[in-house]
């Protein structure tokens, strides 16, 4: 199957997967050092393949909401790494001339609701608008196994099915919602069975196999773009760290994390490309150095940006203070 994917795409996926990993690690480094302004950190390490594979199938103005802990992967949709890191450490990127990260319709970002899942209708509404405006934009709307249970998400799916909208819904099942195992919420072997109940097709995929996800997403995106209506993809993956950094994780069975580290999507894909003869040790070292350099520069620039000022913040007020 993989032979159909052009070599440039395969290598782009590798670079982006590696970049995502290093951004996550950079966030951790900045957070651990303290004082950056980052209020908390929910890491996405080990789950990067899903968002990276999605981005590779989207255009800049398609609507895409990744799982909240994976939003840093949006660099793969064209946002600057500097703007992403700067946003996470609460810097004034607008004043710095950057692009708004959390809410930026130009890049198909319609806000990350802090009350999870409450934004489902926004992204379905954007797909409705695209249909009415007769553009070929589509929406990919992803939640974790936890927020996918929210009532607001169900209504948004019903809307997309009823109105035959170009939306690919995804559940990124990393096996946990805070301390709750996804099995305790779903009671089914294959989460994609949920799709049947809504009257749309559904499919599950190994979320740690970037090429598998790439192909499945490609198929569903094509279907949505050509008027085929909504569908569901479930990507099975794993949250390798606590819900947040500092989580004591008393709910985890012993040895589980270690087992999943063995399925880490990054070395897995690296090996695959090497086996395919597309990547040499020298390539790996070169790309690693380039990516590291890019991220270090971005982080340094981000850290140098000042915090948003009170004066700028109050400009958004309606009426008196």
């Amino acid at each position: 199957m993989n032979m159909d994917i052009p070599k440039e795409t395969l290598l782009m996926l590798y670079r982006n997967l590696l970049t995502a990993r290093r951004i996550d690690e950079k966030h951790y480094e900045i957070y651990s050092a303290g004082g950056s302004g980052m209020p908390w950190l929910h890491r996405g390490i080990g789950q990067e393949a899903v968002s990276i594979a999605i981005c590779a199938n989207l255009k800049k103005d398609d609507y895409f909401k990744p799982c909240f802990r994976m939003r840093f992967c949006l660099f793969a949709k064209g946002l600057s790494i500097k703007d992403i890191i700067a946003s996470e450490i609460v810097r004034d990127i607008i004043k710095d001339g950057g692009n708004s990260f959390y809410l930026n319709p130009e890049y198909g970002i319609l806000g990350f609701s802090g009350s999870g899942g409450e934004d489902a209708g926004f992204y379905v509404g954007a797909a409705l608008s695209a249909k009415m405006r007769k553009t070929d934009q589509i929406t990919v709307y992803v939640n974790g196994d936890g927020f996918s249970n929210r009532g607001s998400v169900h209504e948004a799916i019903v809307a997309a099915v009823a109105l035959n909208l170009p939306v690919v819904f995804m559940i990124e099942n990393n096996q946990y919602a805070m301390g709750t195992r996804s099995q305790n919420s779903y009671k089914m072997d294959d989460l994609s069975d949920r799709a049947k109940g809504y009257g749309m097709p559904g499919e599950s995929v190994d979320g740690n196999d970037i090429l598998a996800i790439y192909e499945v997403v490609k198929k569903h995106v094509k279907r949505a773009r050509s008027g085929g209506g909504p569908s569901l993809i479930v990507a099975e993956t794993y949250r390798l760290r606590g819900h947040f950094e500092g989580d004591p994780q008393i709910y985890r069975p012993k040895g589980e994390v270690e087992e999943w580290w063995k399925k880490d999507p990054l070395p897995r894909y690296q090996k695959k490309l090497m086996d395919m003869g597309l990547l040499t040790d020298a390539d790996i070292n070169r790309i690693e150095a380039e990516v590291k350099n890019e991220i270090n520069e971005a982080a340094e620039a981000a850290l140098a940006i000042p915090r948003p000022s009170y004066e700028d913040h109050v400009k958004t007020v309606i009426g008196d203070l």
Partner: peptide
């Protein structure tokens, strides 16, 4: 508090 949505920003929060 000021009539403003709370920012994701500890310092600004304290101003509002």
């Amino acid at each position: 508090a000021k009539n403003l949505g709370l920012p994701r920003n500890r310092e600004l929060e304290a101003e509002l």
